[in-house]
Amino acid sequence: MTNIFQPISAEIIKTIDETPNIRTFVLRPEQEVPFLAGQFIELTMPGFGEAPFTPSSSHFNRDLIEMTIMKVGRATGALFNFKVGDKVGIRGPYGARYPLEKFEGRDIYIVGGGVGLAPLRALFLALTHEIDKYGRVFLRYGARTPADIVYKYLIPEWEKLKKVDIDLSVDVSDEKWMKKVGVVTCLMDEIPCNEAESIAVVCGPPIMMKFVTMKLLEAGFQGQNIYLSMETNMSCGLGQCGHCKLGPYFTCKDGPVLTWDQVKGIPDPFV
């Protein structure tokens, strides 16, 4: 009998402090978790609760799963006290994957904010793993300060990849910062791809998602080509418990990535 509420065990084998309140946990699950970019996993912090996170590692390497997590509440607060060697629980994968077959042959314009780069990294790695299938990959990423940028140690390597174009901004700079200062939309004044045909993928705080979406629409992106990671209270991951309902969607089942065309009729989709 399959128990849909039962997590399997995963060992924390490494942690990486990304920022003062964001940490990457590298997990080795007791059995392979067959996730695809865009899908998420319910992570059990034994005794402290369960919460949904999208893996930030490549789906081409599933022996280990990386999850980059911001400390925001009770469960994530407890998780930050877990050490290498501790066991956590995993259920999943859940939700819909990015429809990569629809991305083939097109430019892909990725916009991330803060810890929102974590799920986008899984997509970025999937795209660059088979880059010949796609057009160019643009990554536009904004953080509050240079210290709040995640994957600082990886971005220089990503910039060297074929057909990849990366630009960064921070809301508040320091003396060493050489790139743009401002919210992430300041990187979007010139969009170097064919907006009508290209794919846009956005993940970040709801307010950032709202303004980035407006900017993308203004630039000429099609609503069906704008993929948004909707932030709702995904709890069971099974499309049953009801908490993540967003208009006619269970985001844990139909999302968490939905297109603008799917969400545009919903009152206040970005809260």
Binding site: T44, G47, C241, K245
Partner: peptide
């Protein structure tokens, strides 16, 4: 009404028990 809440209780170090209860939107 089908809504439910999953909540975990600590049973010991690294252990938990998960309960499903009716919830209300």
């Amino acid at each position: 009404c089908y809504c439910f809440l999953l909540y975990d209780k600590a049973r010991g170090q690294g252990e938990m028990e998960r309960t499903k209860v009716w919830d209300a939107c």
